[in-house]
């Protein structure tokens, strides 16, 4: 079998780093989008303050994906 990855030990560490970085960056981007949309809606229509419950729930749902990546990357893989 052709060895694609020369050094398994260091490539694992690098892949973990890339995985955590991408996951956290994407989660931060998602949270930022939720927050910015909420603020825009609040600016256009102050009645949108009723949506605060949904905003918190959506934020928690985005957050859990990042935490799952943390669990996988930090503890489960290798």
């Amino acid at each position: 079998m052709v060895e694609l990855f020369a050094d398994a030990a260091s490539s694992l560490a690098i892949s973990k780093g890339i995985m955590l970085g991408v996951a956290f960056a994407a989660a931060a981007l998602g949270l930022g989008l939720v927050g910015s949309s909420y603020m825009k809606a609040l600016g256009r229509n102050p009645e949108a303050g009723k949506a605060a419950t949904s905003v918190v729930i959506i934020a928690a749902m985005i957050e859990v994906t990042a935490l799952l990546a943390f669990l996988l990357g930090a503890f489960l893989l290798g």
Partner: peptide
């Protein structure tokens, strides 16, 4: 699954 994992991961992390 989602309820339990969310609470567990947030507190544990």
């Amino acid at each position: 699954l989602s309820l339990s994992l969310r609470l567990f991961l947030n507190t544990a992390v």
